[in-house]
Design a protein around this nucleic acid. Structure first.
Lengths: 268, 268
DNA sequence: CAGTGGTCTAGACCACTGG
DNA sequence: CAGTGGTCTAGACCACTGC
C-alpha cells in the first residue's frame, strides 16, 4: 500500500486554523476508517444485486486485492456486515449473502413461541391468505412507508394457525410499485416465508424491523377470524420492516393469541 | 509466545457417555482460541470483583503483557465482552466495567416507551414500593431461580408511574441469600435503578435477561393498584434476569398499561 | 489436497482525552 | 504532552470443507 488510506471525500482542507471569525461549528471532522468505506462499497454490491441472496461473495483475499487493502481490513468490514445479519460466514466454505429462505428457523422475525419453548415442536404454521387487494394508503400507512397519503399500496390479510388453531391475524401493507404483480394466489402457492418470496420474486430483502407491542381487545370481525370469544386479550404487534438504506418497505399489524404461545425477547 | 496456545482445561472428559453404551456423541473437539481463554480470565476478574462496576480495567497493553499475548488478541477478547455489554470502551480514556447506574438511559432493560417515542420526555418514573417480604419459593419461582421449592426468597411489589399515572405493576422475587438485608425502606430511599442498587449494595450485577410477553386481563386487586377499569387489557412481561455464568438471580412479573406507552423491540 | 475463513503476531501510525 | 483505544498492514499458521 502506497496510497494514503483516507481516500477522497476531503476536498478543501477547511484551513482549520483560519483567523478572524469563529467559523461556525464544523460538526464532524468526517473521518471514516477504511473498513467503513469498504463496508459501504460492499453494501452497494448487495443492494445492486451483484451479490444475490444465498450466493457466495468473493473470498476475503479476492476482496482485499479488489479494494487494494489488506485482508484484515476487509475482514473487519465483513465482520460488521455479518453482525448485522447481512452476511453469513461459514468457515472453510466462504461468506454468503443472508436470506430469509433456507434459514434453519422458519421465520426469523417471528418471536411467538409455543409455551414449551420449542418452535419446532408444532411443525410449520398453516397459512391462509384471506385477502390481497390494491388500495390507497391511509395517513398512518403512508407515514410508516414514507409515501404520500393516497399513494397506491397493496394490503394483505392472513391468518396463521398452529396445530390447526388460528393464532395470528395479520394485516400488512406494501408499497405497490416494487411489489407489482403480487396476488393472493402467488402468496398462497408459495411454500416458504413471505420474506423469502419477496427476495426471489421482487428483489426486496428485509434487513431489519422494529416492533411496537400493546395489549388490546379484539373487534368482532377479528374474533370471528381467530375463532375466539369477545374480550379475549390479544397482543398487538405493529411492525415496520426495512430494506437496505433504512428504507421502509412493509408495515404490518399482527394480533397474536397468547393463550398457548408467548412473545419471546432477549435483553442484553 | 513459546507456550502452546491450547492451554489446560481438558482433564477428565467427564466420561459423559457412561459405560457400555455407544460412546455417546463426543461433541466438541474442545478447541478454544486464545482470545476466548483470555475472555474467560477477564470474566473471572469481573465476577470476583477485582474489576468493579464503572471502574476502569487495565489498558490493553497492560493486559497483553499480563496474559503474555499480543495486544490484538486481548483486543478481540475485549471486543466480545463489550458486545455483550459487560465492558464499555471509551477512546482516549480506557475500558470500563459496565454498570446499571450512570447509564445515560435510566433503565436499560425497560422497553416500555411513551407513544411519542422519547423516553426522556416524561422525566424519571415515580416509584412506589408496596411490599417487600420474605417468603417461600413457589414451584414456579423455584424453577426460575434454580432453587428448591420452599427455599427462602424475597418478594417485592411496586408500582411505577409516569407523569403521575400508574403504568406498571411489578412483582419480583429474589433469592434470599445474596440479598440479605434488603428492605422496603432501602428500596424506597435509593435513588436510581434497582439494578444499580443490587450492584452497589449486594454485589450482584445483572448481565442479561429473557422476557416472555402475553396479553392478559387484570384481576381486581391489580385493577385497584393500577387504578384502571376491569377488562382493561394489559401486557404481561415475565422476566428472568441473569448474572455472570448464566445464573438466574431475579424473576419478575410486570403488568404494563399500554394505553399511552408501548413495548419497543428491534429485530435484526 | 487446495481453498476458505479464523487466529495470532509485531509493529507503525492515527484519533481522542486529559493534564 | 503522554496515555488510551482505534486502524491498518504483512505475514505466518491453524481449522474446516469438499473434491
Amino acid at each position: 500500500m502506497s496510497a494514503t488510506p483516507s481516500s477522497f471525500s476531503d476536498s478543501a482542507p477547511a484551513s482549520s486554523g483560519d483567523a478572524g471569525a469563529p467559523v461556525a461549528v464544523q460538526a464532524t471532522p468526517a473521518f471514516s476508517p477504511l473498513y467503513q468505506q469498504i463496508k459501504v462499497l460492499m453494501l452497494q454490491s448487495l443492494q445492486s444485486g451483484e451479490w444475490k441472496p444465498s450466493a457466495a461473495i468473493p473470498s476475503e483475499i479476492e476482496l482485499a486485492t479488489r479494494f487494494k487493502v489488506s485482508q484484515g481490513t476487509v475482514r473487519k468490514a465483513i465482520d460488521e456486515l455479518a453482525a448485522e445479519n447481512l452476511l453469513v460466514r461459514r468457515q472453510g466454505k466462504g461468506t454468503f449473502v443472508a436470506t430469509h429462505a433456507e434459514h434453519h428457523v422458519q421465520y426469523r422475525f417471528l418471536k411467538l413461541i409455543p409455551d414449551n419453548g420449542d418452535p419446532n415442536s408444532e411443525g410449520p404454521a398453516q397459512r391462509r391468505i384471506i385477502d390481497c387487494k390494491r388500495c390507497r394508503a391511509s395517513a398512518d400507512v403512508a407515514r410508516a412507508l414514507a409515501l404520500r397519503a393516497g399513494d397506491a399500496v397493496l394490503q394483505v390479510r392472513r391468518v396463521l394457525s398452529f396445530a390447526g388453531v388460528p393464532t395470528i391475524l395479520e394485516d400488512l401493507w406494501l408499497p405497490a410499485a416494487p411489489f407489482k404483480g403480487l396476488t393472493a394466489e402467488r402468496l398462497t402457492d408459495y411454500d416458504g416465508p413471505m420474506y423469502a418470496l419477496f427476495e426471489t420474486e421482487f428483489g426486496v430483502r428485509m434487513v431489519r424491523a422494529e416492533e411496537k407491542l400493546r395489549a388490546v381487545l379484539p373487534e368482532t370481525e377479528q374474533c370471528e377470524l381467530l375463532k375466539i370469544a369477545p374480550q379475549t386479550p390479544l397482543l398487538s404487534v405493529e411492525r415496520i420492516a426495512y430494506t437496505y438504506n433504512d428504507a421502509p418497505m412493509e408495515m404490518r399489524r399482527g394480533l397474536y393469541l397468547t393463550n398457548t404461545h408467548y412473545y419471546r425477547n432477549a435483553l442484553n
